[in-house]
Structure formats: structure tokens, C-alpha cells
Amino acid sequence: MALTQTHRFNRRSKDASVYPLMVASSFVLLTDMVYTSSVLSVSAVTLGSIGISYMLWPAEFSTVGRWLKRYRLSWQAGLLVAVAAMFFLNGISQPASAQFFGQAEQWMTGQFPQGGQVIPLVFNVLRGLFILYLGISLVKVVQAARQDEDWQNLARTPLIILIAITMGDLLSQFIIGGGGA
């Protein structure tokens, strides 16, 4: 009997160490739900609440526990996969506005309204050249790797350029602020 109580105590102390993590992640999920108001965020909050409820009241979920034991499944792993899938689906369901120098283009258009179609054309040409450069560099790196050549040196320059352009985009957002709004 003492062995069973010790085992039960160890299981509860293990769950107790996971409890703050579950509460914190549920708070993050709830914050995401408030800001995005999407069905996937609500589903992720629901799954997180079910996980916390299972940790607090395991006796109430005895049928689910027996089913998980019969198929040798871990409820923590299943919950983690489900919540991660909800976050992933929520992330890709949002509109994609991650363009390089998008806010800089908006600011330039707001500052120079007489520019008309020239400003978007210039920024789109720059984006196109950047994508072409990265694509050609990627092909060269893959060819060098397939021919057992030194592909790391070929990959270094495009990575440096990618990081430099990303930093330039971030710095331009700091300089111009909210896109001229």
C-alpha cells in the first residue's frame, strides 16, 4: 500500500511541475485568441483547458485515461501535437503581409503621392531580383553539394545578403515607424 501511495505522490509531483507550464501556455493561447479572434485560437484554448482539467481532476477523465493506456498513448504528447497543430494552422490562416520593405513602400507612397506606379514597380523589381538571386544561389549550392564540392563557401554569401536585407528591412521599420499612417 505504501508503494502505491509513493507512486501516486511521485506522479502528482511530476504533474505539479508541469502545471505552471500548462497555465502559462494557456494564458498565451488565451491572449492569442483575444487578439486574433479566430476559430483555431478558440480550439487551441479549448484543448489547453482540457489538458489543465485532466491534470487537476484525473479521476473525472478515467475513461479517457483507460483508452490512452490501452493504446499506449501519452496525453501530454497528444495535447502538445494538437496545440502545436492549432498554432501552425492559425499562423498560416492569417493574411501574409511579410514582404521585404513593405512598410518602406507604404511610407514612400505616402510621402510621394505623385510617384504613382513607379514606387511599387521599383520595390517589386527589387523583390524579384532578390528572389532570383536566392534561387540561382540555391541551385548552385545544391549542385556543389551533389558533386561533393565545397558548398558551404557558396552558401555563405547568399546567407550574408539575406541577413543584411532582413536587417535593413527591420531598421527601416524602426526609422519610418508605422508605415506613414
Rank of each mutant, 00 (worst) to 15 (best):
I163V: 13
V125F: 06
N153K: 14
G180T: 03
D169N: 07
L170V: 11
A164M: 01
K140P: 06
I131F: 06
Q103C: 12
D150K: 09
I176G: 04
Q99A: 13
L129N: 08
A104T: 04
A145R: 07
V139H: 04
D169H: 02
P120W: 02
F100H: 06
G115L: 01
P120N: 00
S93Y: 05
G178A: 14
Q99S: 15
N153G: 14
F100D: 01
R156D: 04
G178N: 14
L154N: 05
P95M: 04
G110N: 14
F130E: 03
G128D: 01
I176Y: 03
D150E: 12
G102N: 06
M167C: 13
G177F: 02
P95S: 08
G110F: 11
S137I: 03
G177C: 07
G177L: 06
W151H: 09
A155Q: 03
A98H: 08
T166W: 09
A164L: 05
S172E: 04
N124G: 12
S93E: 09
G168K: 02
E149A: 13
L170E: 00
I165L: 14
L159Y: 06
F100C: 07
M167V: 15
L171Y: 10
G180N: 01
I163C: 08
R127W: 03
L126C: 13
Q114P: 08
I131C: 11
V118K: 06
I131A: 13
G115Y: 01
